[in-house]
Structure formats: structure tokens, C-alpha cells
């Protein structure tokens, strides 16, 4: 049933290689975890339709490689993205330390200054954690990002990460209206204080 799809949103997943970007995406779109997934070359692409409060949004999600050399290629895909998921690996402090670089890159190449950003700390199923939840939270707050910890392996927080991001995009009218003019899409409830769909994470509006 395609007529329920009211808007298409472009999302982008970035972060160091190996932090689990492709795994998070696969978990979200196919609800599986594939330990045999090979390292992304260039960019990959997946589509998923999401229903939020009765409104359907078609998500076109671009997954990027993350290696230094591929970075010259990916900025092109920042163009026109309405939402960005920035991933680090909670078991690798260096992947957390690189976040600042990714934000700089985002700022440089994004064509719009109102992109909604979601920070995801992945691999919380592992017990060799190097980055504390509070550190992630603090970083997200400092850069006005949404924040969640997740595990692509156990599916913790994955659905929420995407849903929360999309919900925020839909609440920022200028973000999607300009490219989808004429399409009536009304959120029934604009009250920002309403109860969240899922718990266990924090969002910084």
C-alpha cells in the first residue's frame, strides 16, 4: 500500500569504520545481524517505510564506509540529507574521540544547517566497554544531538534510534516541507512534552 507514504526522508549513517553502521542498518531494515557482513565499499543504500503516529514516511538510508580514503567520496551524499546518524563503538575509545572530526565534516558538507543529528553508541552488548554512557550523553548535549546507546547484535535501542530521529525531523517543518511542497502532512500532536514511544534513552531537543 503505497498511498499511505506521505514523505520521503533522506538519512545518512556516518562514523569510523567498524563501529557497526552497516550492522545497525541491517538490524533496522531486516531485523537481522550478520557477522559475515563485509566491510562497506563506498556507500550502500537501503529503504524502509516507517509509521509514526499514523503518518508513514519512506526512509532512504545511505550507509557510508568510514575509512579515510572513502571520505573524499562520501561528502557528496551529505547533500540534502535531513537526518544523520553518527555512530561510535562504546568498546573503542578512539572511535569516540573521532566524533568531533565527523561533526566538522558534516558541518562542512551538509547543504542545510537544520539537519537533525542522532548520536548512537553501539555494541553495548560487549563487556569491554571503554566509553561511559554519560560521556556519550554529554557529548550529544554539547552538540545538540539526540542520543541513544544500542546494540545491533541484541537489537537494543536500534528501532528507537531511527524512530526518534524521524519523529524529530517531522517536527521540524522547514526540514522536509520545502522539498515536498503541496503534500499535506500534519502531525496531530505538536506538544513536545508528550510521552515518548520508548524508554531507556535520552533525547536532547
Amino acid at each position: 500500500m503505497d498511498d499511505g507514504v506521505l514523505t520521503t526522508l533522506k538519512l545518512l549513517i556516518i562514523g569510523e569504520s567498524g563501529v557497526g553502521k552497516s550492522s545497525l542498518l541491517l538490524r533496522f531494515t531486516d531485523d537481522t545481524f550478520d557477522p559475515e557482513q563485509s566491510a562497506t565499499i563506498g556507500v550502500d543504500f537501503k529503504v524502509k517505510t516507517l509509521s509514526i503516529e499514523g503518518n508513514r514516511a519512506k526512509l532512504a538510508i545511505w550507509d557510508t564506509a568510514g575509512q579515510e580514503r572513502f571520505r573524499t567520496l562520501t561528502p557528496s551524499y551529505y547533500r540534502g540529507a535531513q537526518g544523520v546518524i553518527l555512530v561510535y563503538d562504546v568498546t573503542r575509545r578512539d572511535s569516540f574521540m573521532k566524533l568531533e572530526n565527523w561533526l566538522n565534516e558534516l558541518e562542512t558538507y551538509s547543504t542545510r544547517n537544520d539537519v537533525v543529528k542522532m548520536l548512537v553508541g553501539n555494541k553495548i552488548d560487549q563487556d569491554d566497554r571503554e566509553v561511559d554512557r554519560n560521556e556519550g550523553l554529554k557529548f550529544a548535549r554539547k552538540h545538540s544531538m539526540l542520543f541513544i546507546e544500542a546494540s545491533a547484535k541484541t537489537k537494543d535501542g536500534v528501532q528507537c534510534a531511527f524512530e526518534e530521529l524521524v519523529e524529530k525531523i517531522l517536527q521540524t517543518p522547514g526540514l522536509w516541507e520545502s522539498e515536498h511542497q503541496g503534500q499535506a502532512f500534519q502531525l496531530k500532536d505538536q506538544d513536545p512534552g508528550r510521552g515518548r514511544a520508548c524508554g531507556g534513552y535520552c533525547s536532547i531537543p
Binding site: 531494515t29 565499499i41 563506498g42 556507500v43 550502500d44 543504500f45 529503504v47 580514503r69
Partner: peptide, 30 residues
């Protein structure tokens, strides 16, 4: 050009084969 390229890449679909083909098409640089 970018639009054209991402359209081509997106057209390959979201299947495993599509992903594989997509990676191949972008592997020239690698």
C-alpha cells in the same frame, strides 16, 4: 552527476545482490 550516480546506485535495489553490485561499481577507487 551525483544525483545521477546515486540514482543508479539506488536503482540496484536493497537486496544482497544489489548491495554487492553497488560495492563493485564503487570499487574502482579501491
Amino acid at each position: 552527476q551525483l544525483e545521477e550516480q546515486s540514482e543508479v546506485l539506488a536503482k540496484l535495489g536493497t537486496s544482497a545482490e544489489g548491495s554487492h553490485l553497488r560495492a563493485r561499481m564503487q570499487s574502482a577507487c579501491l
